[in-house]
């Protein structure tokens, strides 16, 4: 299968400072890819280059023709002077029907919020509304830039389960940048560890055992990664498509963590 977005020898600079060099990256239909890396490692810059907001200093970014991207920004600072209902927000920049808006909100777990002001939503609701907006165009690729930065751990975990459900139902590829290593990695097909360049790349298990990854993130994540292995061991034997775990089992796993 050909890639939705590909970069070839991508180098990004801000002024004299090189934030990212020689990145070869590709994401294929239906994949969940996570980019991890310390602050200032160029994660967000990579996202910006992929959506066309940052011009490569060298190398190139190639998108599949007519690619539909749904983008969930890191955070959306809403100026208090700007009145905006959830329903109105969903119609930006393309106006959508009430039915499409209702469906997207329901899909993202934010049903019934249409008439609320964006500014009055809780952090978790806000992220779900951003996700609903991103889903409206039936994206082939969903890009989430630190989408759970403002959420607590259970909130973040719930949000990632939602993302997995969306992928399962729509078949869209998902590209995420995250700090929530253990939560986010368990849901990924592939992890890319970034620190100015691609340090290592592979299945979550391969990356978590790579010495460069350990050097960047320390040994502190071991427990969570043990949990991760346990998590994946049992459903990789069966239906690889299914990421659905019985609710009770999920709780047990969290308790272990």
């Amino acid at each position: 299968m050909s890639a939705l977005i590909e970069t070839h020898d991508l180098t990004l600079r801000f002024g004299d400072r090189t934030v990212l060099r020689d990145v070869d990256f590709a994401i294929r239909p239906g994949e969940i890819v996570t980019v991890v890396g310390p602050n200032g490692s160029g994660k967000s810059s990579l996202m910006r280059a992929l959506i066309g907001g940052l011009k490569p200093a060298a190398g190139r970014v190639t998108r599949a023709r007519g690619l539909r991207v749904g983008y969930v920004p890191q955070k959306l600072v809403l100026d208090r002077t700007l009145p905006m209902t959830v329903r109105r927000f969903l119609s930006l920049p393309r106006r959508v029907t009430d039915e499409a808006a209702r469906e997207a909100l329901a899909r993202a777990g934010a049903a019934g919020t249409g008439q609320q002001q964006l500014a009055t939503l809780s952090g978790g609701q806000f992220q779900r509304v951003l996700l609903a907006r991103a889903l409206l165009d039936r994206p082939q690729l969903l890009i989430l830039d630190e989408a759970t930065a403002g959420l607590d751990q259970p909130g973040a975990a719930a949000f990632y389960r939602l993302i997995e459900d969306v992928r399962h139902d729509t078949g869209c590829a998902v590209l995420m940048v995250s700090h929530d290593l253990h939560v986010v990695m368990s849901a990924s097909d592939r992890v890319i560890c970034l620190n100015g360049h691609v340090c290592c790349e592979g299945t979550p298990q391969v990356v978590s055992e790579a010495p460069v990854y350990r050097a960047l993130f320390g040994e502190g994540t071991r427990g969570a990664l043990a949990l991760y292995r346990h998590h994946h061991d049992h459903h990789h034997h069966g239906d690889a498509q299914s990421h659905d775990h019985p609710q009770a089992e999920r709780h047990a796993e969290q308790a272990e963590a």
Binding site: R48, Y71, P73, L76, M84, L92, I143, D145
Partner: peptide, 19 residues
């Protein structure tokens, strides 16, 4: 109007939508 509102809300959101 629509494009300016989107860009006012968030520049990256606008970029991703081709604005």
């Amino acid at each position: 109007w629509q494009a300016m509102l989107t860009a006012t809300l968030n520049p990256e959101l606008a970029r991703a939508a081709g604005i």
